[in-house]
Design a protein around this nucleic acid. Structure first.
Lengths: 208, 208
DNA sequence: CGCAGGTTTGAGCACCCTCAACGAATGTGG
DNA sequence: CCACATTCGTTGAGGGTGCTCAAACCTGCG
């Protein structure tokens, strides 16, 4: 079974949101239900996407099931140009999401977006290569807070599994670190996927 | 002590190869001795560089001394555009190296280079996030072989410390994995920084 | 030849993963 | 509206991979 087939047949990945390619891409946002795929590893890569609402995960699978999420994309962000001709990653809606297709843009508009993606990937390299579990989770919370306007209350669209696969940890470790942060009074967990930062400077120091 | 000061004063980092910025960048390659810096974290980032000969490491330091090398650049490769206005990384010559400065190029020339950097960074994310020590070292050897023409004999310009900081491991672990590969007959180590791949397919399978 | 830096190897331990069970939350059907 | 199923999240016990600390060994070079 190829990765692509695995992707389509996995119980989680219900269906692709749209047919392969309406030759004149839509300018209207397309609704993508939670868990649905946007593109898959091996598919032709010829356009970009912007998140209108919701959230997207971009990841790659190993043959043995290991998964690494290379990026989350939140409202307003552009993604999809991680390859030249064909995609090397899967992209899926995390929750109910609106996606707008962008038409081929001039290079001078694409370059800043590509550079931002590069900067994010490089920052993530540091985290995965040299930070321990507590530092990774702290950095993740700070990153999410900053990408949601710097507020102390964060709404996480993704599951613990997604967070773990983004941070190179297991769900148990993510859960344990969050619990420890809560016990220390650094964060509060008012709901399953809500986090409230109580001591931001402490958290920032931890993220190192 | 700031990172920048640490960089300049560290015993390893002898000196910068050139003065801050001859306003009309040189078209001749500049010789950079082993260990010398090319640019530093926090410096203004306004040009690109191409490796004419030798090799370069691009890395970031944590305050406590941890280091993550985000990329090696070998002969012919272009680097230096990892940031918008200021560098977020250090770049140093690994060995005696020739560097050519490139002048501001149009975006449509830069974009493919940026995308290749992005693809490499994303591939490295998988390695750091989800692969064990043996897989990392195997993948590194395969990568170096492919970047040196696909030959079975690899010349490594970098030290074990550099390899470890690239792969998110310690030098001891790198050394142990190499020894184990040698004992298994998968590679030979004819010199300290030479590797000969004896069983390429085995090594490729290990790299997953 | 002697020194210094880099590399290898070993012993012990810490952090994180694995496996397992429990608890909470959401959705479905009766 | 409640019982149940299912998924997701939390917590615990134990083990393994890779790190820390330490010493010996090369190897290049003055």
């Amino acid at each position: 079974m190829t990765l692509h087939e695995a992707f389509r047949s996995a119980p989680d990945h219900r269906q692709f949101a749209w047919a392969p390619a309406p030759s004149s891409g839509s300018l209207q946002p397309v609704f993508v239900p939670a868990g649905a795929g946007i593109y898959a590893q091996g598919e032709k890569s010829d356009r970009l996407y912007r998140v209108e609402f919701g959230a997207v995960r971009v990841y790659r699978l190993f043959a043995d099931g290991r998964r690494q999420i290379s990026a989350f994309h939140l409202c307003g962000e552009v993604f999809g140009f991680e390859a030249h001709a064909t995609h090397h990653f899967f992209a899926e809606a995390i929750c109910a999401t609106g996606i707008r297709t962008l038409h081929a843009s001039p290079a001078d508009e694409l370059l800043p977006v590509a550079l931002q993606g590069l900067a994010r990937a490089q920052a993530h390299l540091l985290l995965l290569g040299r930070q321990n579990a507590a530092e990774r989770v702290a950095a993740f919370l700070i990153e999410m807070s900053e990408r949601q306007g710097g507020l102390d209350r964060i709404e996480l669209p993704m599951s613990r599994t997604d967070i773990a696969d983004y941070l190179g940890l297991t769900i148990e470790t993510v859960s344990r670190v969050l619990s420890k942060l809560r016990r220390k009074g650094i964060i509060r967990l008012p709901a399953l996927r809500s986090v409230e930062i109580a001591k931001r400077t402490t958290l920032e120091d931890m993220a190192a």
